[in-house]
Design a protein around this nucleic acid. Structure first.
Lengths: 238, 238
DNA sequence: TCATCGTAACTTGTCGCCAAGTTGTTGTGT
DNA sequence: ACACAACAACTTGGCGACAAGTTACGATGA
């Protein structure tokens, strides 16, 4: 049962990888596949739904299922010195950024410790959504200590570039500390923001950004990249 | 519909993150959740099946669904000089390796180019499965040029450590080139090897390993890590 | 002959009901 | 009083039939 579903998934994935199935092309119907594989229609449906939720195909009732256009593929380079904005411009992409939130967070021990904040201090979360060539591609969250940026509550909703904001506050040189990459799935909210289905994994990169001079932690960042678009070049000589 | 499913998923994920739902604990039944959320049972079933396929819960017919034990969490460090074996030992884990395949691959332009092989040359794929504390955690594939290792066809099925093999062939110093990290889903075969469900994303790291002296490419590697276990510390000062 | 409308055949989407497994309670026998 | 068996109530698993949407073909009218 489970194996049959995955077999059908693997077979269709292979057809797409081999270019035997290209974007816009129609897949065989549920009944046709059920007959071909000698399995109940439900098995086929589960397999196809999985492909749909992974973002590879889309479904039109009464019409059929079709291969989606492939997302653009972007290779991010591991350099802590450049902002996401700079990297995208360097690669020739058209980047648009929109501020999506500025809110005070509840006490969180780990976060507060990283920001060197006391339990009674205020910590703000600034969120930006990034479009590349008109497609939402990444969510950036920055967490900052209000004692370090006293007007963050008022400024926050207008910030699109944290680096620009820090420069306005007198910081010029930045360094990055403790970059950890993991994989997660989008919440409903994130799905809406990124226009993706629930089984598209997100690459989560967490790090601290420091003022290069004083070694003070300026922000803790959480960046969510769509894994169907982004690869990460982690070569040491980047 | 789609939103309701994801909402239920998010709610249960939140309960697990908050420790309100811990391993071994029973989840509410399909009917209870359907009633609570005022949705058809099918909606709940889809949501729960999703959590199951992501590896968070398991299901026993007639009994209910239960929270799985959390996978061990391992943070890999970005150093090209150390083998996976060395890293795991250093971290204090009990690593077991088994050779799973040695086979000649079909011509693949990209692969052959990376290995500096001509179209008529032979390229072999050596696969190893890695257990940590008796749980399958990673699959390692090495691709080598037979002209560089003429006895690979005979030796290959017995290799568990490529570095050890290269040392026996007279290579002592290695460097890594072009490490690219991406995210993929396991095929049926990989699911069986890694004992994981089909929606557990895998972290795929591809790189070339070079002989430090001659700068010759010794192998192209593809490593598949379970993303529910591994995080990647990509800090530059690792 | 061509255009339009209706119907049948196809497609995906959903739901109710039955199947299969587990557990708890009640009744009966020792 | 205790043990065992049967049945009801619960659980997840699966399937057939119907719902909703699309397209193609055939019939009718101009």
């Amino acid at each position: 049962m489970y194996n049959k579903e995955t077999q059908i998934i693997d077979e269709i994935m292979q057809l797409m990888v081999n270019k035997a199935l290209t974007s816009g092309q129609k897949l065989p119907s549920e009944n046709a596949l059920a007959k071909k594989h000698n399995v109940p229609r439900m098995t086929v449906r589960n397999a196809l739904t999985t492909l749909e939720e992974r973002g590879y195909i889309y479904s039109v009732q009464g019409k059929g299922r079709f291969v989606k256009e492939k997302s653009m593929q972007i290779e991010l380079h591991l350099t802590g010195k450049k902002s996401f904005t700079d990297k995208m411009e360097q690669l020739g992409y058209d980047l648009t950024t929109k501020n999506i939130c500025c809110e005070k967070i509840n006490y969180d021990e780990k976060m507060y410790r990283r920001l060197q904040a006391d339990k009674d201090d205020s910590v703000y979360k600034i969120g930006r959504l990034r479009w590349i060539d008109d497609e939402p591609m990444a969510i950036h969250y920055s967490f900052v200590h209000a004692a370090r940026f006293p007007s963050i509550a008022g400024d926050g909703p207008n910030i699109t570039s944290m680096f620009a904001y820090y420069r306005k506050q007198g910081y010029h040189d930045f360094t990055s500390q403790k970059n950890v990459l993991s994989v997660t799935f989008p919440t409903e909210y994130e799905q809406k923001l990124l226009s993706c289905k629930r089984m598209v994994p997100l690459i989560l990169v967490e790090s601290d950004c420091l003022d290069a001079d004083s070694k003070q932690v300026l922000e803790h960042t959480k960046i969510l990249y769509r894994s169907d678009t982004f690869k990460y070049d982690i070569s040491m000589d980047a």
